[in-house]
Amino acid sequence: MIREMIVVEGKEDTAAVRRAVGADTIETGGSAVDENVLRRIELAQDRRGVIIFTDPDSPGERIRKIVAERVPGAKHAFLTRGEARGRDGIGVEHASDEAIRRALNAVRSPEESGCGEEGVQIAWSDLLDAGLIVHANAVRRRERMGELLGIGYANGKQFYKRCIMFRITPAEFAASLQQLEREGL
């Protein structure tokens, strides 16, 4: 049984998570997260800890941002868009049990300081040099780097913020970039 409460979007996500792992969930009821739900998530964070596990799409990212701002220290689990793709859209409910377990085993925790090893952090210029922004294939490169780093897909600005928030070290970044290059992206 997973100790933390898992924040998901809806009932189908709860069913998928419970099918894959033993866990309790809190459903946001979609992207219009109301105050009562946010208070329950805060209480869960105080008592058990929270893992935010939303769909890898725009509404899911909006929910992730709302909850993360309100509940500092919440952990994050990410599915790739490929893992979450179903016949009728993208969502946690479409992911295989194996993909859900993988995402929950690779949970990332933000750190207050926002610095990597020995105070070194990723710079905006690192993203530019790596072709993750202002590059013909930047979207695909960010998507794959997000998979390799375990921080999910995001636009350039959000990707940079996640690198800082999750304390991605220059060594982790370089290793993932090398893998990206080996794959020909």
Results as ranks from 00 to 15, higher is better:
Leu180Tyr: 05
Arg19Asp: 05
Gly150Lys: 00
Gly60Thr: 13
Pro110Asn: 06
Val33Glu: 11
Gly60Lys: 06
Gly30Phe: 12
Lys11Gln: 15
Ile2Ala: 03
Glu117Asn: 04
Glu117His: 02
Pro59Leu: 12
Gly150Val: 00
Gly29Ser: 11
Leu128Thr: 12
Ile52Trp: 00
Arg140Tyr: 07
Arg108Trp: 09
Leu128Pro: 01
Phe53Ala: 09
Gly29Thr: 12
Val107Glu: 03
Gln158Asp: 15
Gly10Asp: 11
Phe166Asp: 00
Glu42Cys: 10
Ile100Ala: 04
Ala32Tyr: 14
Asp88Phe: 15
His76Cys: 04
Glu143Ser: 14
Gln121Lys: 04
Ala175Asn: 09
Ala103Asp: 09
Glu93Ala: 13
Ile164Gln: 02
Gly131Tyr: 09
Gln179Asn: 05
Ile6Tyr: 01
Arg40Lys: 14
Gly49Val: 08
Val21Met: 07
Arg70Ala: 15
Val21His: 00
Arg162Met: 08
Arg182Thr: 10
Glu42Ala: 10
Arg19Gly: 08
Gly30Asp: 12
Arg167Glu: 07
Glu98Phe: 05
Gly119Ser: 03
Asp97Asn: 14
Val67Thr: 07
Gly152Lys: 02
Asp129Trp: 07
Gln179Val: 07
Ile51Asp: 03
Val50Cys: 10
Phe173Asn: 00
Thr25Met: 05
Val8Pro: 08
Ser109Glu: 14
Asn36His: 14
Ala68Ser: 12
Val67Lys: 01
Glu35His: 12
Gly150Arg: 03
Glu69His: 11
Arg3Ser: 15
Ser96Cys: 02
Glu83Pro: 03
Gly91Trp: 06
Arg167Leu: 03
Thr14Ala: 14
Glu181Cys: 05
Asp55Met: 10
Ala174Leu: 06
Phe166Met: 01
